[in-house]
């Protein structure tokens, strides 16, 4: 048990190191899916591990100890008390973080619903008459695309088609829920932050590839991204202080080469990396149940 409960933490670090590498080399649709799956599995496993470590404190609880003495059994304490207490505290932090993330998601969804209020039911595009160049997809039934007039005015006709195809891909492939899953995984396990960043980047790449296919031209797609980024940059000079992860530049560079391959072996390795902590946590559960059942019966 000692080995099993600490390994998931190491494995989540490993997943975080692997995520950006996979993100740059594997087809974005495949990479985004496997990384999110692995992150969710790992986060569940590390959270459950904390539960186990905290629960192991039960082994120190006076009734359990007394009962064990009466039975004449020797108690094996698998977890030092200080670790158990630390796990309990960590668990409380995890619960608070996940709660906060869920609330943020809800608030975003509410804000978006307000934007859709009063729009004709079967209309995909919502235009906002605004000087701020802005474009994003609004998940839901039906999904919508919100674009400001400033953004539409800045793009050439074929570039506008890229923009619409890109946002449409976000909706069609349910990128919203995928990113939400990665966000909640990160909330439960902060070590997974790089995995979430990789997924956020990958869904953009995924939508870019879909747009390039829909428009039939990678160069036009790259040009649309460049124009939109420059327009948005001009309108927001505060962006010099704004954090930039070179995401747009990296996306444009990716469009200037051929689409990355579906590297199934790499994808399966990532999935295995996610499944391993889950298996270890399951194994540790068995150990703990075995330990407790002896004294609780």
């Amino acid at each position: 048990m000692r080995f099993d409960v600490y390994t998931p933490l190491l494995l989540s670090l490993l997943l975080s190191v692997v995520a950006p590498v996979i993100g740059g080399r594997v087809a974005p649709a495949l990479a985004a899916r496997v990384l999110t799956s692995a992150a969710v599995l790992t986060a569940a496993a590390t959270t459950w591990t904390l539960v186990l470590l905290a629960a192991a404190l039960l082994g120190d609880a006076p009734p359990v100890v007394r009962e064990a003495r009466e039975d004449g059994r020797r108690l094996v304490d698998p977890v030092p008390e200080v670790i158990g207490v630390a796990a309990g505290v960590a668990l409380a932090v995890v619960v608070w973080r996940v709660h906060r993330a869920v609330r943020a998601e809800r608030s975003t969804r509410r804000a978006l619903r307000r934007l859709c209020a009063g729009q004709p039911a079967d209309t995909e595009l919502i235009v906002a008459a605004s000087d701020v160049p802005q474009a994003f997809a609004i998940p839901g039934r039906p999904g919508r695309i919100l674009v400001t007039s400033a953004m539409l005015g800045a793009l050439a006709p074929d570039e506008r088609r890229v923009l619409l195809a890109h946002e449409r891909a976000h909706l069609a492939h349910r990128h919203g829920p995928l990113v939400t899953a990665a966000t909640l995984a990160q909330a439960a396990n902060p070590l997974l932050a790089p995995v979430r960043s990789a997924v956020v980047f990958l869904v953009e790449r995924w939508a870019d590839e879909q747009a390039a296919t829909a428009v039939g031209d990678r160069r036009t797609t790259a040009r649309a991204l460049a124009r939109a980024a420059l327009t948005a940059g001009r309108a927001r000079p505060a962006c010099t202080l704004h954090f930039t992860d070179r995401a747009v530049t990296r996306r444009i560079a990716a469009l200037q080469t051929s689409p990355p391959p579906h590297l199934w072996p790499a994808a399966l390795a990532v999935l295995a990396l996610g499944a391993l902590p889950a298996l270890l946590a399951a194994d540790a559960t068995g150990d703990l149940l075995g330990l407790l059942s002896g004294v609780l019966n």
């Binding site: 994003f136 923009l163 946002e167 990128h175 940059g233 962006c239 930039t244 995401a247 747009v248």
Partner: peptide, 8 residues
């Protein structure tokens, strides 16, 4: 949200 473009 997934914005079309981010900062430069």
């Amino acid at each position: 949200l997934q914005q079309f473009v981010t900062g430069l």
